[in-house]
Simulated scan of single mutants.
Amino acid sequence: MARWQPGTRERLQSVSLHLFAEQGFERTTVAEIAAAAEVTERTFFRHFDDKREVLFAGQEDFVAMFLDPIVAAPDSTPTLELVSRALEGTAALFTDERRAWSRMRQPIIEAEPSLRERELGKLATLTVRIGEALQERGIGEPGATLAAEMTVTVFHLSFQQWIAPGEDRSLQALTRERLDALTALVAPSPNGRTGRS
């Protein structure tokens, strides 16, 4: 059995994803994953705590790609610009090379209630962390929470479109389109009303 080869973690992720897609998440065992990746089960557990972590590894990196641009922005940056910067930060992780992985991963998540719950928990945690980062910059409530919710909603809707069959636009382009649509809804119109009202 191969041990500690370069790219072992990535190979385990790839093999796991294909097995989950072919035979279902619950029916796939760690032993099967390890065998298909030509490593021992012990090697699998050096990289992941359990098979769920194959799908959810990198949570802190995921959160950081939103938070780092907020933290790094100049003190005078308006709230909406902070939201925009946070969304632009997603481009670093969700590249075109990652789209195929994300397209395979999503049906696996959606088919398993416990995985859907974990995914929702991940987004809820992200919302809280963004809200905290905005509060630390002096943005009061309810503004910080509303801005955090907006950030995650725009990201989620953009991500769903990004993995849709036939979609080839970048995630960054999709988030910008949706953020523009949202801000247009609340922007004052010439008659003093907001959006299309």
Rank of each mutant, 00 (worst) to 15 (best):
1 M>E: 09
3 R>T: 12
4 W>A: 15
6 P>L: 13
6 P>F: 13
6 P>T: 13
7 G>F: 04
7 G>K: 08
10 E>D: 13
11 R>W: 10
12 L>S: 03
13 Q>K: 11
14 S>K: 15
15 V>L: 05
16 S>G: 08
17 L>G: 00
17 L>E: 00
19 L>R: 00
20 F>C: 00
24 G>Q: 00
26 E>K: 10
29 T>I: 13
29 T>M: 07
33 I>R: 06
35 A>Q: 11
35 A>S: 10
35 A>W: 09
35 A>E: 14
36 A>V: 14
36 A>Q: 11
37 A>F: 01
40 T>Y: 01
40 T>C: 08
43 T>P: 01
43 T>E: 13
47 H>P: 03
47 H>G: 06
50 D>Y: 04
51 K>G: 05
52 R>G: 02
53 E>H: 10
53 E>T: 09
54 V>D: 05
55 L>A: 01
55 L>D: 05
55 L>P: 05
56 F>S: 08
58 G>E: 01
58 G>Y: 10
58 G>C: 01
58 G>Q: 03
60 E>W: 13
60 E>V: 15
61 D>E: 13
62 F>K: 02
62 F>I: 11
63 V>Q: 11
66 F>T: 04
67 L>K: 02
68 D>R: 15
69 P>Q: 12
70 I>M: 10
71 V>K: 08
74 P>S: 12
75 D>H: 14
77 T>P: 07
81 E>F: 05
82 L>R: 05
83 V>H: 05
86 A>K: 04
87 L>I: 12
88 E>Y: 09
92 A>C: 08
93 L>F: 06
94 F>N: 00
94 F>M: 00
98 R>Q: 10
103 R>W: 12
103 R>S: 12
104 M>Y: 01
105 R>K: 14
107 P>A: 09
108 I>S: 08
111 A>F: 08
112 E>Q: 10
115 L>W: 00
120 L>P: 02
121 G>F: 02
122 K>W: 11
123 L>C: 00
124 A>Y: 00
125 T>N: 06
127 T>M: 03
128 V>S: 08
129 R>V: 14
130 I>W: 02
130 I>K: 07
130 I>M: 09
130 I>R: 04
130 I>F: 03
132 E>V: 15
133 A>P: 00
135 Q>M: 11
136 E>F: 13
137 R>Y: 08
138 G>C: 04
138 G>T: 07
141 E>Y: 02
141 E>P: 02
142 P>V: 03
143 G>V: 10
144 A>W: 05
144 A>T: 03
146 L>G: 01
152 V>G: 00
153 T>L: 12
154 V>R: 02
156 H>W: 12
157 L>K: 07
160 Q>E: 15
162 W>A: 07
162 W>Q: 05
162 W>S: 06
163 I>A: 01
168 D>Q: 08
170 S>V: 09
172 Q>I: 14
173 A>V: 07
173 A>M: 06
174 L>G: 01
177 E>C: 07
178 R>Y: 14
178 R>V: 11
179 L>S: 05
180 D>F: 13
183 T>A: 06
184 A>L: 11
186 V>F: 07
188 P>E: 05
190 P>Y: 04
190 P>E: 04
191 N>L: 11
191 N>C: 04
191 N>S: 13
192 G>I: 06
192 G>T: 03
193 R>W: 00
195 G>C: 06
196 R>E: 14
197 S>T: 12
